[in-house]
Design a protein around this nucleic acid. Sequence first.
DNA 1: AGATATACGCTACGAGTCGTAGCGAAAGCT
DNA 2: AGCTTTCGCTACGACTCGTAGCGTATATCT
Lengths: 214, 214
Amino acid sequence: MCRTTPPAGRKGRPRSPEADAAILSATRQALVDLGWSKLTMGDVAARAGVAKTTLYRRWAGKSELVVDAVAVLFDELELPDRGSLAADAEGVVLQFAALLERPEARTALMAVVAESTRDEALRTRIRHAIVDRQKRLVLEGRRRAQERGELPYEADEAAASRTADLIFDVVAGAVVHRSLVSAEPVDVEWARAFTGLLLGGLTAASAAAPRLRD
Amino acid sequence: MCRTTPPAGRKGRPRSPEADAAILSATRQALVDLGWSKLTMGDVAARAGVAKTTLYRRWAGKSELVVDAVAVLFDELELPDRGSLAADAEGVVLQFAALLERPEARTALMAVVAESTRDEALRTRIRHAIVDRQKRLVLEGRRRAQERGELPYEADEAAASRTADLIFDVVAGAVVHRSLVSAEPVDVEWARAFTGLLLGGLTAASAAAPRLRD
DNA sequence: AGATATACGCTACGAGTCGTAGCGAAAGCT
DNA sequence: AGCTTTCGCTACGACTCGTAGCGTATATCT
């Protein structure tokens, strides 16, 4: 799970996987109890039943530790096939929203992103541990829609990639903003209104030829 | 500017407005130089040339201080009338993006939102000092579009308000996500693609009667 | 087996930050 | 004037950080 220094086939005593699991679990619980700002390395070590130095052997600091701790939450994301693009999109939105309901994720996500604005390494760590796992849902939804014939297979691969990035930023950004900034519930009603807007824009764009305005 | 305890018409020596300005300015500069996590109250006091106790008389802590310090950046937001809804929407997006390019705003915004997930008072402070000032641009854009006849005047005021909230979360969320999470530039090309998607969805929704799916 | 290398728990440490208290002096209001 | 509040300054206990040093435990290599 992305240690500071992967212990590639060396000689001495290997790091304890039980300690890893205990630390990450303790970190999530500490996030629930204390929130990001009051979470301390010493507290996590005490909760996990390990020495503080053991944490620092694995993670450079609080940010890296928390990223790995919440990353596993994003592995649970699954998207059942609901039969249509509209229903699947609604599913993606509600999945994201359910994750942001969890207090560990709420307090941790914005904090590590804020930290990453001045730390390139942390930013790529977040991308691999969290963002890419969210993006899978969007890509999976598009793939299914293409198989159903609801969306065209795009010839220009670069353009298709740009469109996917755009959709992802819109979906993830809107859900996060609604949930954390506006602090309003992302319920089925909102999800339906949002996906209606989004899919309306998509079909309008694909119907109205490549270029929209000049 | 939202002090901790508004010095309503009391008797003694009034608080120094120069100190206020110096502190907020020093806070912004400290955000640029140090970033959110390394910014300390003592450092800001030293930069502003005031005593640390003076800061604590006005603000309860780092979060409140930073919110007020970056709030003034959002006062500069202006939206020239570009003649069409599409052009105005593009203008809103680029205005938000330009603000997020500023290092003070980049590092501060996500951090205070993260903090606000466990602090209701801070959340409403952010809403008044920052979110409402962004939202004005969206509402202004809608008003102009309605005057031009590009958007209908909605009879149901509650529904109109919900739609405006939705649009705002989508616009602000997408720009923030693109800029801070994906860490990709919000240039004219992206803004055009995004507003194309958004307006396509809007016109599709208004054309296809009230209810979209059942 | 023995040697070697690494992880682990524990204690201790200097450095830095927090938020507050107490003081005398300055500045406005009635 | 007299009163009230702010301001700058110093000092303080409490807390967190990240590291160093030590003895012990557990793996691989010869």
